[in-house]
Design a protein around this nucleic acid. Structure first.
Length: 617
DNA sequence: TTAGGGTTAG
C-alpha cells in the first residue's frame, strides 16, 4: 500500500514516463501546479532521470531537507515512489535525504533499493539509522528467506565491510524481534556468503538461545564463533559458560574459562559465580567441595566474591542438606559487612525449614524485617511449604491469608504449594476448591497444579477421579511432564500393575520425555513389592543402558527387595557394591540393614565402622 | 550487556 500516493482518480490518460517529465518541469516553472491524473499502476522502472535537470534536483533537495513532503508529493506525483527512490539512489543524493524520503513514502520498496540505501548509510557511518531501518524491515516488512535477503545484498553491493555490517545488524534485528530461528539461520549462512559477523549480533543471539534453554545450539554457535575467528568478549564468554552450566556440562564450562584466559580475557566475578552456581546445582557427588574449591580459586586469582557469590553458596548448602555450612557462610557475610538481601534470607529460611528448625527460620524472618527487608511472595511460599511439610497447617493457612493483606500477589506456586498440602492431607475437596479459587483470580493452573491433584487422587485410591483429571488435561492441552508419568507409574506399581507401568515408558518415549532415576527406581520398587526381583534387576539394566548409574535410592530399593525375598547374601553383595562405588548410605539404608538384616539375625559383612554406626543409630 | 531464591514424582 502507498496511502500518500494512491488517489481515487480516474483512469490513465497519458503514459507517466513521457508525461511526468513535462509535467514536473511545468510545475517547477509555474506558480500553481495543476492537478494531474496519474497512473494507477505505473511501471517501476519507466521514469527517466529527472535529475539531469539541475533546477529540479535542487528543488527536490530543498523540499526533502525542509521535509516539505506535501510539495514534494505534488512535484513528483506521476512517478511511482519506488522508481523515485531508485532515481534518488542513482543521482548522488546524500543518504539522509534518501532515508527521509524512504521513511516518508511508507511504501513497500523492492529489497534491492532498501539494501542500496543501507550500503550508503553504512558508508556514511550512520549506524543507528541502519539499525532502525533493519528493525522496521524485520518487524513490519514481508518475510523473506534469509538466503534471498543475502543473495539480494550481494547483487547490490560487493563491499565486504558494508555487507558484513548490514548482515550483522540484520541478525541483531531478528533477535530483537523475537525471530531467533532466523537469526541462527543468518548466522549459519553468513559464512557461506562471505559475510563476517561480530560479537555485536552474536552476543544477544547467544543470550536468547541460552534463555530458551537451547544449550546445545549455544555451544555450537560458540564453537563456530571461534572457528570463524569472531572476537568473543567477556560478557559473551559468561553467557556461553552459563549455558554450559545449565546443561550440566561443567567440565566444558571450565574449559571455556581456561580458553578465555588463553585469549587474554580474565574471568570476572560473574564468570566465577556462574560456575560456582553450576557446581552447586549440577556438580554431582561432592558438588559443594568443588564449589568451595572454586571460591578459593577465585580469591587466589584476585577476584573478590560479592553478595551474590555468598547467596549462591548459601542456597547450594541448603539444598545439599547442610544448613550448618549455609549458616557459616551467612555469618561470614555478616563479618565482612556485606549487604544481605531478601534472596539470602529466603534461601536460608528454606534450608532451616527443611532441617526442621522452625524457630530459627522464624527468627530469621524477624531479623530480615528488622533490617528493613520486606518478605516477598517467595518468602511466603517457602514458609507455607515449610509449615505444611511440618504438618503445621494452622500456621500455613495464617500465612496464606496474610499474603493479600500485605499487598502481595498470590501466584501459581503459592497455590500449588497449598493445593499439594491439602492433597497430601487427604483433603481433596479443599484442594479442588483452591484450584477453582485460583481460576477465579485468573491464575492459570500449570502442569504442577495438575500433578499435585493427580497425586492426591491416587493416594486416595480414587483412580476414576485421576482418570477424569488426565482427560481434562488432554482437553485443555496441558502437556503431561516427567513428574506426571512418575506419579502414574508409582500409582500403577502400588496397585501391583508394574508390568502395565513399564509400558508407559514407551508412551513417554513417543512424547520425547526421558525417564529419570525416579522413574526407574519407582518401577524397581514396584517389582520388588510384587516379589519379582528378577524383573527389578532387568529395569536396573535398562536404566544403565540409558547411561544412568544406580544411585542410593536404587540400591535401597534393590537391597530391601532382596532382603524381603530372604536373599540376604545377594542384598549384602549389593550393599558392598554401593559402598565400593563411593555412594554413602543414608538413613533409609541404615533402617533397611537394621530391620531387614540385623534384627532378623543376619550379620552383614560390611565395614566395621559402618556396622557400629548402624547399630548405634 | 553476563551470575542468585519458591511448587509436584522414587
Amino acid at each position: 500500500m502507498f496511502p500518500l500516493f494512491l488517489t481515487k482518480t480516474p483512469p490513465v490518460l497519458v503514459s507517466p514516463a513521457s508525461m511526468s517529465v513535462t509535467y514536473v518541469r511545468r510545475c517547477l516553472h509555474s506558480r500553481t501546479p495543476r492537478r494531474f491524473l496519474h497512473t494507477a499502476n505505473p511501471s517501476p522502472t519507466s521514469a527517466p532521470n529527472l535529475f539531469s535537470d539541475p533546477i529540479f534536483k535542487s528543488k527536490v533537495e530543498e523540499l526533502i531537507s525542509k521535509q516539505h513532503w506535501y510539495n514534494l508529493k505534488e512535484l513528483i506525483k506521476p512517478i511511482n515512489p519506488s522508481s523515485f527512490l531508485e532515481l534518488l539512489l542513482e543521482s548522488g543524493f546524500d543518504s539522509s535525504s534518501i532515508l527521509g524520503f524512504f521513511r516518508w513514502s511508507k511504501v513497500y520498496h523492492p529489497l534491492e533499493n532498501l539494501f542500496k540505501l543501507l550500503v550508503l548509510l553504512v558508508n556514511d557511518k550512520k549506524y543507528p539509522k541502519v539499525r532502525s531501518l533493519l528493525h522496521d524491515f524485520v518487524k513490519n516488512g514481508k518475510t523473506h528467506s534469509v538466503s534471498s535477503v543475502f543473495h539480494t545484498l550481494l547483487t547490490c553491493s560487493d563491499n565486504f565491510c558494508a555487507n558484513s555490517i548490514i548482515v550483522d545488524m540484520l541478525v541483531l534485528a531478528y533477535v530483537n524481534n523475537g525471530k531467533l530461528d532466523l537469526a541462527l539461520e543468518g548466522f549459519r549462512r553468513a559464512g557461506d556468503y562471505g559475510f563476517k559477523l561480530s560479537v555485536f549480533s552474536c552476543k544477544p543471539m547467544l543470550k536468547g538461545v541460552v534463555k530458551e534453554g537451547k544449550f546445545e545450539v549455544g555451544e555450537n554457535v560458540y564453537k563456530e564463533m571461534i572457528r570463524r575467528r569472531i572476537w568473543v568478549d567477556l560478557y559473551t564468554f559468561n553467557v556461553v559458560i552459563n549455558g554450559l552450566c545449565k546443561a550440566a556440562k561443567l567440565n566444558k564450562a571450565r574449559d571455556v574459562m581456561d580458553d578465555m584466559k588463553v585469549r587474554g580475557i580474565m574471568p570476572n566475578v560473574v564468570t566465577y559465580n556462574t560456575l560456582i552456581d553450576g557446581y552447586c546445582k549440577r556438580g554431582g557427588d561432592g558438588k559443594m567441595y568443588k564449589a568451595d574449591a572454586l571460591l578459593r580459586e577465585m580469591v587466589e586469582q584476585g577476584v573478590s566474591p560479592n553478595e551474590r557469590t555468598y547467596n549462591i553458596l548459601i542456597d547450594g548448602f541448603c539444598k545439599d542438606d547442610n544448613v550448618g555450612a549455609a549458616v557459616k557462610v551467612f555469618k561470614e557475610m555478616q563479618l565482612q559487612g556485606m549487604r544481605m538481601d531478601v534472596v539470602t534470607f529466603n534461601s536460608l529460611i528454606y534450608g532451616l525449614f527443611g532441617d526442621g528448625k522452625v524457630d530459627e527460620a522464624l527468627g530469621l524472618r524477624a531479623e530480615m524485617i528488622h533490617l528493613g527487608l520486606e518478605p516477598n511472595i517467595r518468602t511466603y511460599n517457602v514458609m507455607i511449604n515449610g509449615f505444611s511439610k511440618m504438618k503445621m497447617f494452622g500456621e500455613a493457612k495464617e500465612l496464606f491469608n496474610d499474603i493479600v493483606k500485605q499487598g502481595l500477589d498470590l501466584n501459581v506456586l503459592t497455590f500449588n504449594t497449598v493445593i499439594d498440602a491439602h492433597s497430601k492431607a487427604g483433603k481433596m475437596e479443599e484442594a479442588v476448591a483452591l484450584r477453582d479459587q485460583m481460576l477465579r483470580k485468573l491464575i492459570c493452573p500449570n502442569i504442577s497444579t495438575y500433578n499435585c491433584l493427580l497425586g492426591g487422587y491416587y493416594r486416595d485410591g480414587n483412580v476414576g477421579a485421576a482418570k477424569e483429571l488426565l482427560e481434562e488435561m488432554e482437553e485443555k492441552s496441558v502437556k503431561a511432564d516427567l513428574v506426571t508419568y512418575n506419579i502414574r507409574i508409582d500409582a500403577m506399581c502400588k496397585r501391583e500393575e508394574s508390568r502395565k507401568a513399564v509400558r508407559l515408558l514407551d508412551e513417554m518415549s513417543e512424547k520425547r520425555l526421558f525417564p529419570s532415576h525416579v522413574t526407574y527406581n519407582t518401577l524397581m520398587a514396584g517389582y520388588c513389592q510384587e516379589g519379582n526381583t528378577k524383573a527389578a534387576v532387568t529395569i536396573r539394566k535398562r536404566m544403565e543402558k540409558e547411561g544412568k548409574q544406580p544411585n542410593v535410592v536404587t540400591y535401597n530399593v534393590l537391597i530391601k527387595g532382596f532382603c524381603q525375598k530372604d536373599k540376604l547374601e545377594e542384598a549384602n553383595a549389593l550393599l558392598n557394591e554401593m559402598l565400593e562405588r563411593g555412594l554413602a548410605p543414608n538413613r533409609i539404608t541404615y533402617d533397611i540393614i537394621r530391620e531387614e538384616m540385623i534384627d532378623k539375625g543376619f550379620v552383614p559383612d560390611i565395614d566395621g565402622h559402618l556396622y557400629k554406626d548402624i547399630v548405634n543409630c
